[in-house]
Design a protein around this nucleic acid. Structure first.
Lengths: 336, 336
DNA sequence: CTGAAAGCGCTTACAG
DNA sequence: CTGAAAGCGCTTACAG
């Protein structure tokens, strides 16, 4: 490894390490001649500062830790991209980790990132409080939760989406199309307060609009087949209009409906959370409640930057969901 | 920041920093009693070693740099996941960067990662040789290219896929279904030797099988609308069977065909590279030439580990493409 | 304006 | 078996 150090630059420019440091960091007073001589030497030598050594003195590493449950989920990929892009433009390198929806692995990543002395973390947390999560607050590491929050950790600001506006619009659309019964598949809500809130909001809204007795709610698990029995039960109850709180379930359901020969937008209607590219490619296009992931990501990154650089404790923020009506909601046939 | 240091542990356990270091690293001889006393203190204090300080002495950071063109592309998301997973299990933290298919940003990331003194890099390169890419070899940073290679940089091992087996099988399938003319949309080949090789392989194979005059090849750009004129031209030439070398083009084409009312698997047939989840959700399911991305990723990570830990220069490796026939290839109607 | 010195947290010979 | 000391590359008071 032929790393060039400031000592090499000092040697070549006939100055001392302290002068080189000052010249390269624009700190203190240096003679313009000396400065340009040093800069020339640095350029010729191809100097790349050692940010580890730098960090040891200044308690800043320029490293941000990002933890998502699964980067293969397009929603999180979009989120990660937005965050990473904002942070890179602010001079931060982002280290991405995948918790695989597993608390132990999440904690392992947090510890590993702490050992790199990252300047702070942006986390899509899974599950509840854990030892590593706690240590983040006791060690006062700037941290922001994104997309989901952890109950019992109010110290940490969170950027998530407000399910109400989008759900309200979606329910209105179903009503306008003549539906009388609505099914809601809420996803693997066990570990996710966000999914819980979505379900709760749906219940409240839909109950008021359609009457408690016409509202059907069931949750699923992370398993790849958990949707099937739920859908069967709901359809037997005469439900033909569905809202999916968890887009992976919607994808599963679409493929199930497809294999059953049910026509989406005809026999049945559905709306999913998350505005995935995929939903616009399917025929018919799927109506969605968008969380505006791009906005959530850049807002989260912004709050991270405020925390790390400003030091003040920013407030949590909510991004409104918006409903995009497309072709997957058609007119109710003979919904009794 | 309340980071615990080995000095704190030395104080609490009534030993010295050097003894603590030895105890925690299982190096040299230490009295078992001392050792357990130190370990207890470390545990109680919640000690997390400072890997930067560690790295400064040992020239190992435990950090791997991964650079992909766009993490939002599901193919790269799968690839990144596989790599990151393998590396994490080997004790490495992966820093992911996105070059956005832009050479300048690619170089910026490489420099930024070098300044973190990453132990090595795994890169899906874009374009040709650049200053930063060159410096990787002159500085002897362990590097492996994955999915694509860079012409003129034979020093760097590459793991990519061999297009031949998959293409051959796909062409065989078209032939079996009675097609006489084949169109190949090769994607934005300008900066990608991989896409160039695919096109070349297609030309050779298809020319031999169908005759030069029945083989139509065109490339596209990264733009979101570049497919439209290409498809129009080909269909006017009487082409109803298509192979897409670049999956993003196939996605575009599917949505174009959908809006034109053309039936895939009926009016026209198509095969795309990359076994994306999406292709199995569409109706009909899309036949694909799979690159076995999971395999490429773990192989790439393995070679990285060999380079970093073994030090020997490993060979480049090719992973065979395999063809998965599905419903998007139907019988030719009246192909003249 | 510039250099010598101390120190960030750790490891590693070197004495004892 | 254990401690004191040097040094990794850098920054930051402190003298000059």
């Amino acid at each position: 490894m032929a790393y060039v150090t400031i000592r090499d630059i000092a040697l070549r420019s006939g100055t001392s390490v302290s002068t080189v440091s000052r010249a390269l960091n624009n700190t203190g007073r240096i003679a313009p001649v000396t400065k340009s001589r040093i800069e020339k030497a640095a350029r010729e030598l191809g100097y790349i500062p050692d940010s580890r050594a730098k960090a040891m003195r200044s308690t800043k590493t320029g490293l941000a830790g990002l933890l998502v449950p699964d980067i293969r989920n397009p929603y999180f990929a979009d989120l990660a991209y937005a965050i990473q892009d904002t942070l890179f433009n602010a001079g931060y390198c982002t280290s991405i980790g995948t918790s695989s929806e597993d608390s132990a692995q999440q904690d392992a990543y947090i510890v590993s990132m702490l050992s790199q002395h990252i300047d702070g973390m942006i986390i899509v947390p899974r599950g509840g409080r854990t030892a590593a999560l706690e240590s983040l607050v006791t060690m006062e590491i700037p941290t922001v939760f994104v997309d989901r929050h952890v109950s019992g950790m109010p110290q940490i600001p969170v950027v998530d989406s407000d399910p109400l506006p989008g759900l309200q619009a979606a329910l209105g659309d179903f009503q306008a199309h003549g539906y009388k019964k609505i099914g809601y598949i809420s996803g693997p809500i066990l570990d996710s307060p966000t999914l819980q809130e979505r379900e709760y909001t749906f219940r409240t809204l839909a109950g008021a609009l359609f009457g408690e007795e016409n509202v059907f709610v069931e949750s699923t698990s992370f398993s790849h087949t958990s949707c099937l029995p739920v859908l069967r039960r709901m359809r037997q109850s005469g439900v033909n209009a569905f809202i999916f709180g968890y887009s992976q379930d919607a994808i599963q359901a679409i493929s199930i409906f497809g294999s059953q020969g049910a026509t989406i937008g005809g026999d049945i209607s559905l709306v999913s959370f998350d505005d995935l590219e995929l939903f616009q490619l399917l025929t018919p296009k799927i109506s969605v409640v968008s969380q505006q992931v791009q906005k959530i990501g850049s807002l989260g990154a912004q709050i991270f930057l405020n925390l790390v650089e400003g030091g003040e404790q920013p407030d949590s923020q909510r991004v409104e969901t918006v409903y995009f009506p497309r072709q997957s909601v058609g007119c109710a046939a003979q919904d009794k």
